[in-house]
Computed example of a mutant assay.
Amino acid sequence: MSVGQAAIGRIFREEYGRSLATLIGVFDDIDVAEDAVQEAFALALIKWPAEGLPPNPGGWITVTARNRAIDRLRRRTRERHLLGDVALLVPGGEPEEQDPVRDDRLKLIFTCCHPALSAETQVALTLRLLGGLSTDEVARSFLVAEPAMAQRLVRAKRKIKAARIPYRIPAAHELPGRLPPVLAVVYLIYNTGVSDPEERGLCAEAIRLARILSTLMPGEAEVAGLLALLLLIESRRAARTRPDGSLILLRDQDRRRWDRSLIAEGQAIVRRCLLHDRPGPYQLQAAINAVHADADTAARTDWPQIVALYDHLYALAPTPVVALNRAIAIAEVHGPATALALIDRLGLDHYYPFHAARADLFRRLGRHGEAATAYRHAAALAPAGPERDFLTERA
């Protein structure tokens, strides 16, 4: 069966990080691995439409990229000594999945999130290398120009090479100190998949990585909290959109379509986290989602408990985004006017959920002209896709 470019694009998103991480583990060179994987996908664009998908597209990409990299190294006579190592490291067939604690993609995240790199660079590099996002897509995520982001990524890769930042999962005693940016990146990978229908493979990848981290660090409550949070959000996937792809708000979702097995697993993890008595931001966000999952209808949601959890979360992480979400919950307890007064104090003019929240509060207050203006502002800032379409329709 022939395959179109859109299907190959989806495979690229799903397999790019896996193939790249495997080749970095073999060649210990990000640039060599990147060039080889991109050449393999370029070849796939030629061969697959005519010949159809291979039985294992990801394995085909990895093996083809590996062979391309070996050919390139063979041409560099000064590096002939590396070929013997490559022959020993890489079998002739398709690569097998590694043991979880030896996972190449997790190694790549820890490399990208090394403390020698800035926090923004850690996130940008991970999205580029593991998520397969283009430099332009990463640049738009950070609201910077593509050339500036390209320079930032090149500098980061040079620094990894010059500083000999190791491609490995840190030793057990190093893990707690290296954990915060890794958790942040895994969460961002998941959110990237949620916000873009073309990136849904990233959601499964983020959950997989969170499970591996939980295996590596069973005593870390925040790791468990992140896993629970992702499972609980993922449980609502089937109810989040209509057959035509349009967005359905949480309060309007058919809760019979929520995945009860994911909810049960996530809520069980939340209960175990309570035993640690070391609440952190991911645990509290998971608890908030667990409360939503407890309600069989939107009307039966325990909003006072959610507000109390947001109060605790804001005490730990007093960010404008947390304050915005707290205000949205307060609207359900104390009314939209109280929430609007809180939201208007926040400096989030370039954050489209801020304008969407204001629009909804204006609508509930009967201030329809202001609601329409706010919806239009939110739509202008939102990325292309179901959310922008929803906001435009509301306007």
Rank of each mutant, 00 (worst) to 15 (best):
Met1Trp: 09
Ser2Leu: 08
Ile11Thr: 07
Tyr16Trp: 08
Tyr16Ile: 09
Gly17Asn: 12
Phe27Pro: 04
Phe27Glu: 01
Ile30His: 01
Val32Leu: 14
Ala36Tyr: 09
Ala42Phe: 12
Leu43Trp: 00
Leu45Arg: 08
Pro49His: 04
Ala50Gly: 08
Glu51Val: 09
Pro54Ile: 02
Pro55Glu: 05
Pro55Lys: 08
Val63Gly: 04
Ala65Val: 09
Arg72Met: 12
Arg74Ser: 03
Arg80Trp: 06
Leu82Tyr: 05
Gly84Tyr: 00
Val86Leu: 03
Pro95Met: 07
Glu97Lys: 15
Ala119Asn: 14
Ala124Pro: 10
Leu129Lys: 05
Arg140Lys: 07
Leu143His: 08
Arg155Tyr: 13
Ala156Asp: 01
Arg158Ile: 08
Arg164Asp: 04
Leu175Met: 13
Gly177Arg: 14
Leu179Phe: 02
Leu183Gln: 05
Thr192Ala: 09
Pro197Gln: 13
Pro197Trp: 07
Leu202Asn: 02
Leu202Lys: 04
Glu205Tyr: 07
Arg208Gln: 06
Ala210Phe: 00
Pro218Ser: 15
Glu220Lys: 11
Ile233Arg: 15
Asp244Asn: 11
Ser246Gly: 14
Arg256Leu: 11
Arg260His: 15
Leu262Asp: 09
Ala264Val: 13
Ile269Ser: 06
Ala286Tyr: 04
Thr297Ala: 05
Ala327Thr: 12
Ile328Gln: 00
Ile330Phe: 09
Ala337Asp: 05
Leu365Asp: 00
Ala371Glu: 09
Ala378Cys: 05
Gly385Val: 11
Arg388Ser: 13
